[in-house]
Every structure is written in C-alpha cells, then in structure tokens.
C-alpha cells in the first residue's frame, strides 16, 4: 500500500462524484428530503414517533446509498477495463479499497452531518449523546455499505444486476434492524437473524445516542459495525484478482 496511490484514487472518485450532479444530489439531498417527509408524516400524530424512527433513518441512508453507489461504480471499473489497467500498474489492492473507502467515507460524513443538522436543528429530534458520535456511526455505516457494494460488484455483469443485490442484501437488514418492530420483541429466530446483521448495530447505536448520554454501548455497537466493514473489505479484496480468467 502506498499513500500517494490511495489518495490519488480517493481524489479521483471524489472528482467523478462532483461531475455527476444527480448522484451527488441523491447522496446529499435526498436523505434530508426523506427525513423531512417522515417528520411531516408524523406531525399531526400524538407521541414521539419521529424520535423513534429518525435515528434508524440516519443509520440507514449512508448504508443504502453507499452500497448502491459503490456497487455500480466498482462494477464500471471492472467491466470498463480501468481496474485491469490499475492492477497492471503499481497499485495495491488495498490502495483501491481504501481509496474508495476514504472517498465514500468523506461523502458519508458530509451527508450525515447534513442529515443530523436538519434532524436536530430544524425537526427537533432529541439527541442526548454527543452529536459528533452520531456522525462517526454514520461514517462506519457508510464504509460498511461501500465494502458490501464492492464485494457484490464481483458477482454482477451489468449495473442492473448490481442493483438487484439491493433487495436481497439490504432490505432484509432494513426490515429486521428494529425500525419497524423493536428487535427485542421479534420472534426468536428473527431476533437471532437480526443479531448477525450489521445494520442492526448501527441502528442500535443511533437509537442509544438519542436516549442516553452514556457512550460505552455506542462504542461497542460501533466496534461491531467496524468489524463487519473490515470483513467486507477483506471479502472485497478477495474479489480483486490481479490475474483473472
């Protein structure tokens, strides 16, 4: 691994994103709009539904968006020949992986900073814990989404196929992460399944930060998310072969 190359890749990915206004809007603006929509839906209802659902959304968006964007962009690199070219150059696999992780981690930081500012500042989401930690969770979550997206891109031939992994790998995590039904009251089997899905931990961490000022549970959840992200990156590295068929 070579920092010059890693940073070159991160900078290049960011330039590409900047060029693509629609994707940038999807990454940065759409989460804010959806959170506002959710807040509006519950506005006339009694209770604190927005406080209950908001943190889950803050955890979901970085994950989903980064999963989609990474799976499609790395698929393009694989099918367009640029990955083959880079692998024939003095680029290490880790340069490629971390380059992407850094670029998308940065975007995720901006994204969640915007979403958090909106939720807390304008929509009155109550957050007891430190707000910066919320952003840290979002970044870990984004890196996790990137890592998974990178991994699945190895199994898709077209961008359409890449997007198809979303219902298979992402939606079950959304359903079981505690957003719809608290994880504790899920049927036993589903509870166990939700225990092995990484998004559950990200949502737990976010929910904890809204309720409590203690952070040790958050760090534990964060460690789980980070471990999954590292495992995802390792799997992704396994799919980057210098020599291919």
């Amino acid at each position: 691994m070579n920092p010059r190359i890693t940073l070159a890749i991160a900078a290049r990915v960011l330039t590409q994103l900047r060029r693509d206004h629609r994707t940038l809007a999807i990454m940065l603006v759409l989460p804010c709009l959806l959170i506002s929509l959710l807040w509006w839906m519950f506005e006339d209802l009694p209770g604190d539904s927005f406080d209950r659902l908001g943190p889950g959304l803050l955890a979901m968006f970085p994950f989903i968006v980064m999963f989609l964007v990474t799976s499609v962009t790395t698929l393009r690199e694989r099918s367009g020949g640029t990955l083959e070219r880079l692998l024939a150059m003095p680029m290490g696999k880790l340069d490629f992986l971390f380059g992407y992780a850094i670029a998308f981690g940065l975007v995720a930081a901006v994204q969640s900073a915007a979403a958090v500012a909106l939720s807390v500042g304008l929509l009155d989401l109550t957050i007891e814990g430190p707000v910066w930690l919320l952003t840290v969770v979002a970044v870990a979550d984004a890196v996790l989404g990137s890592a998974l997206g990178l991994f699945v891109s190895a199994f898709a031939q077209t961008e359409f196929q890449a997007v198809q992994f979303m219902p298979a790998l992402v939606i079950p995590q959304i359903l079981l992460c505690g957003l719809f039904v608290p994880r504790a009251v899920l049927p036993d089997v589903l509870n166990v399944v939700s225990d092995v899905l990484p998004l559950s931990y990200a949502v737990d961490a976010m929910a904890h930060l809204t309720r409590s000022t203690t952070t040790s549970d958050v760090w534990a959840d964060l460690a789980v998310v980070a471990a999954y992200a590292v495992a995802g990156l390792a799997l992704g590295a396994g799919t980057l072969r210098r020599r291919s068929e």
């Binding site: 190359i5 070159a8 900078a11 590409q16 003095p90």
Partner: peptide, 20 residues
C-alpha cells in the same frame, strides 16, 4: 480503459499519480 466522466487531462493526472 479511461474514465468517461473525467476529462482527458484529469485521466492522465490520475494515472500519473498512480505511477508516480
């Protein structure tokens, strides 16, 4: 094998950095 969404100069600047 170049990036469609970057300019010619940006593509070369990127690969030049990778190659050092």
């Amino acid at each position: 094998s170049v990036y469609d969404d970057l300019s010619v100069a940006e593509n070369l600047a990127f690969f030049a950095r990778v190659l050092g």
